[in-house]
Write a protein that binds this DNA or RNA. Structure first.
Lengths: 188, 188
DNA sequence: CTCCTTAGAGACGTTGCGTCTCTTACGGTT
DNA sequence: AACCGTAAGAGACGCAACGTCTCTAAGGAG
């Protein structure tokens, strides 16, 4: 019997975990099934990850990579933001709502990283736009900066259906652009 | 042995369920524990609710009531919105993050109601403000209308700590008011 | 007073967790 | 080339909680 080791084995485990997630969903995923699919024992899993949540998070990272790596620079603020939102949507389409929910309930600090990371991406995009003279200033409140991505994340969590492109457009045109372009009147 | 019936028994069951939720959290709540605390058998629970999620939702409704019943009317748009957000925050403080997460993962359509309900509340508040002449028009995009409550809900879901008052103020002053007061410049 | 619903109690089979144990393949060391 | 330690592959195990089922008897309806 060929016995797998190191990176090869690890990859097989993560592949098995992810396939299992896609097939059964997060809620119905069992460690037994993952082990069986990977043709190995449960101990091999528990030697690497302490529980279901950690395993699935690792599998997700392994399969889908990170969004915050490269920042769009199309020359248009509107298109840049739409691009970011589109990438989030695509990623979510792969992951699916129940996995999202399930992970959040068991591993609350997970998305903290991708969460705060998005603020940085948006800040860069806005800075680029300000340098092009597209908007008056890059000095935008954090709350405004994160509004589109946060609202999209909220949308993905609460509606079961895939988020349509029109929602992304609405987020940008009805909420984000009015807040950063021109000088939105302040109340206080 | 006194045997409880009808509303009295139901109330005892829901009380027991909620106390158990507060004590153990949603994830660690067991039907056995609820039954034991209510001094009854599991069958009495399963006769009324099909599973844990349904039971806890019922208990939550029973204990916390609804937010969308009465709509604030302080005479100031800013105060009205802050009041709504404050009520959401208070409610969440009672419920707690893990219950929120747990319920969402098992009963995804739950909050749909409170969710769409908030849009109506905000619409009324904005209409009141427009009639007072506080803002130019009550014709505000749905997306803008729901932005504050959705962003707050997002905040409650992703940060474990209680939401501070400053966040509510920021949501209103940095995002909502700029969008509804004056004529925010449109891009399309 | 009788009857019918259902409360209260707990046994039961099942599932999946996480731990433990055992054998044995493999890669590094001497 | 022989040896040895680590970890793979496999599965048994005890435990917890699920949801179902069964039984007895309380107490309201007639």
């Amino acid at each position: 019997m060929e016995r797998r080791r190191g990176a090869e084995l690890e990859a097989a485990l993560l592949d098995a975990a992810w396939d299992e997630v896609l097939e059964s969903g997060y809620a119905r995923l069992t460690m037994e099934a993952v082990a069986a699919r990977a043709h190995t024992g449960k101990q091999v899993l528990y030697r690497r990850w302490r529980n279901r949540a950690e395993l699935v998070i690792a599998a997700m990272r392994y399969r889908t990579g990170s969004i915050i790596d490269d920042i769009p620079d199309t020359g248009s603020l509107r298109d840049d933001v739409l691009e970011v939102l589109q990438r989030m949507t695509d990623r979510f389409a792969v992951i699916g709502p129940d996995i999202f929910h399930g992970l959040l309930s068991e591993a609350p600090d997970l998305d903290q990283e991708a969460f705060t990371g998005m603020a940085g991406v948006m800040a860069t995009i806005v800075k680029q736009a300000a340098e092009r003279g597209e908007i008056p200033t890059a000095d935008v409140p954090e709350r405004v900066l994160t509004a589109p991505t946060n609202l999209l994340r909220h949308e993905m969590l609460f509606t079961r259906d895939p988020v349509p492109a029109s929602t992304l457009v609405s987020l940008v045109d009805d909420v984000f652009l009015p807040l950063v372009s021109g000088t939105p009147p302040r109340s206080g």
